[in-house]
Write a protein that binds this DNA or RNA. Structure first.
Length: 574
RNA sequence: GCGCCUGUAGCUCAGUUGGAUAGAGCAACGGUUUUCUAAACCGUGGGUCAGGAGUUCGAAUCUCUUCAGGCGCGCCA
């Protein structure tokens, strides 16, 4: 129906408005044809005449009168009303209205071939230095949801995790494991900047050494250390690397492998699977001229960099950054930015139309910088889109759950999943726009009470399943089409809501906002519960039963599909 | 100081590419079950959309400004 009505609108635009090309394009872009939010405004409604009146300087209601006659002649249109300042409300015949349900079976229309894009989404990308905590869960749920939504719309989507395995943080982890494995410190004197979580001990235990126990000179290693924590840990790393180089490498790679695997396991439990794990180390060494990182730096150094105080600076201010940035340190090592620059070059060279970076919102100051490096390398910064995800406050019965990483004592994502299940967790992570603060109350998520929106939605699905079962047990088969439906009105509101599904998905995809689906689910579930309480389906006239079951079949599919788009399984019974 | 984000009902938030009387959940109060799952439903009260000015046929939405809050501003990652 949408297509037919669009055609009618277009013919009106072409034949009756007499607009020049530029104005016409503006009109095509700005006007809307959408499902009415309430049936007393018709089934479909358009603001075309209001927008057109601004461009043609004609009275919107006069335009509407003309448009009404054009639409009136379209197939399936019962009547047309002009409302308010010039809205055109379109009422379909009941037959045409319900036939939309049959057409809606193909629930999500793919975008046109010409608009299909190759998209890469990079998300989570937490440092491999410990288990994922609940803060990471939101990024995981968000990235995975937009990946599902975009691919359902017909885009080609690849999910990637960037593993920072080359930096100092991993050295600190390796050092912490080393110190634990050989009990170099007690709990009190353990270096303040080391990782102190109990998982470090687990890793230490898991690493089996081939040789007989190595002889570690603890006194030598631990004496005369600097007071300052950062300097202390750096000094320890240096000493271990030089005195026990083979052992260091074994522990470092073993620790990294262990943590990476545990992150993968946690994500699997959360139903997030990545297509690609990209290791920072694969970009190579700066000293190796053939490496990706050396080549990328070479490229920007030629035109957009200079030397100052022994370091190499990128002229990022030329590309809108606040200040220039160091890319090669005084001591010759690269900065984090240099690795990221090479990583983004690598991503863009892989031929994606769009790369989406999902970052914690504390990184927002970094956006301009990375955009500048992308432009400095000669790419278009608009190919990259950064989506910020704000950290979630975890509450338990109204009180904040402590998340101290320093002590190593924190609520992990795995614990959350074990506690309330991956589905409820995903649901609540996505229940608010990603770049805004979220208060996530575990008590509510766990409860089986009416404050729990997750169960409210699932209950609607389960209730439909239950009615269907009962209906089948009475000897019927589920209808696949409406029957003699010209006068069937019992499910009008519900159907109107369900038909909106494909528009919601499109909007969620265009704006990268999965929370729109959550709110849609709530509205749809509400519409269903309302109908269900109002109507005794299995006591209705037989003809109506068939049609109700048909309508509920649509609603059930829409709920299940919506949930699937955010990575949640629908419940058949509760 | 500079930059980004936020301010909507008692609370938590939708609605922000300008559209029709600003919505929902919770909380409060009052109802609904011999009936397909009451994890549900119905009703009542509750708002200067932070304040002010502007643009427009029309502003919670756009512009300017004031106030309040959050975050970011390393040769860290």
């Amino acid at each position: 129906m949408f297509t037919q009505l669009s055609l009618a609108l277009n013919s009106f635009i072409d034949n009756d408005l007499g607009l020049a090309g530029g104005q016409k394009n503006q009109l095509l872009k700005k006007h809307k044809l959408h499902l009415a939010d309430s049936l007393d405004k018709g089934h479909w409604t358009t603001n075309l005449c209001l927008v057109a009146s601004g461009l043609t300087k004609k009275n919107p209601r006069e335009l509407a009168t003309k448009l009404a006659t054009v639409i009136q002649s379209a197939d399936g249109v019962d009547r047309v009303e002009i409302a308010g300042p010039g809205f055109v409300n379109i009422f379909l015949t009941q037959r045409a209205f319900l036939q939309q349900v049959e057409q809606a079976m193909d629930l999500i229309p793919s975008v046109d071939n010409s608009l299909q894009k190759k998209i890469q989404i990079e998300f989570v990308s937490a440092n491999p230095t410990g288990p994922l905590h609940v803060g990471h869960g939101r990024g995981a749920a968000y990235g995975d949801a937009i990946a599902r939504i975009l691919s359902s719309l017909g885009h080609q989507v690849e999910k990637e995790y960037y593993v920072n395995d080359a930096g100092r943080q991993v050295d600190i982890l390796a050092c912490s494991i080393f110190l634990r494995k050989f009990s170099c410190f007690d709990d009190v004197s353990f270096p303040a900047s080391g990782y102190k979580g109990s998982y470090v001990l687990e890793i230490a235990d898991s690493i089996k050494l081939d040789d007989s126990a190595p002889n570690i000179q603890k006194d030598q290693l631990c004496k005369d250390l600097p007071e300052e924590p950062e300097a202390e840990i750096d000094e320890l790393i240096t000493r271990i690397q030089s005195s026990y180089s083979d052992l260091w490498l074994v522990i470092r790679s073993g620790g990294l492998a262990y943590v990476t695997q545990s992150i993968k396991d946690d994500l699997t439990a959360f139903k997030v699977e990545f297509d690609q794990w990209f290791f920072e180390s694969s970009l190579g060494e700066l000293s190796d001229e053939t490496s990706d990182i050396a080549k990328a730096l070479h490229k920007v150094k030629q035109e957009h960099a200079y030397e100052k105080a022994g370091a190499v600076w990128l002229e990022s201010t030329k590309f809108g950054d606040d200040k220039d940035r160091v890319i090669i340190r005084e001591d010759g090592r690269g900065t984090y930015l240099s690795a990221d620059l090479a990583y983004h070059k690598n991503k863009l060279d892989r031929g994606f139309d769009t790369i989406i970076n999902v970052w914690g919102s504390d990184h927002h100051g970094y956006i301009k910088r990375i955009e500048a490096t992308i432009e400095a390398m000669g790419y278009n910064k608009n190919q990259m889109q950064v989506q910020l995800v704000q950290f979630a406050n975890l509450l338990e019965d109204g009180a904040k759950v402590k998340m101290s990483t320093r002590s190593g004592n924190f609520y992990t994502l795995k614990q959350l999943i074990d506690d309330i299940g991956p589905d409820a967790a995903r649901f609540y992570y996505l229940s608010k726009q990603a770049d805004q603060h979220l208060d996530f109350d575990i008590g509510v998520a766990r409860s089986h009470s009416k404050d729990n929106l997750y169960y409210y939605v699932q209950y609607a699905h389960a209730r439909i399943c239950s009615v269907q079962k009962k209906y089948i047990s009475l000897g019927h088969t589920l209808p696949e089409a409406f029957k003699d439906f010209d006068e069937f009105h019992a499910c009008d509101d519900l159907i109107q809501l369900a038909l909106n599904f494909s528009f919601v998905v499109q909007s969620a995809g265009e704006n990268l906002q999965p929370h729109l689906i959550i709110y849609y689910l709530r509205d749809l579930a509400q519409g269903f519960h309302h109908f269900y309480n109002d109507t005794n389906i299995l006591k209705a006239a037989e003809q109506d039963q068939v049609n109700m079951l048909r309508a509920l079949g649509l609603v059930k599919n829409v709920i299940a599909s919506s949930l699937e788009l955010i990575g949640i399984d629908s419940l058949e019974q509760m």
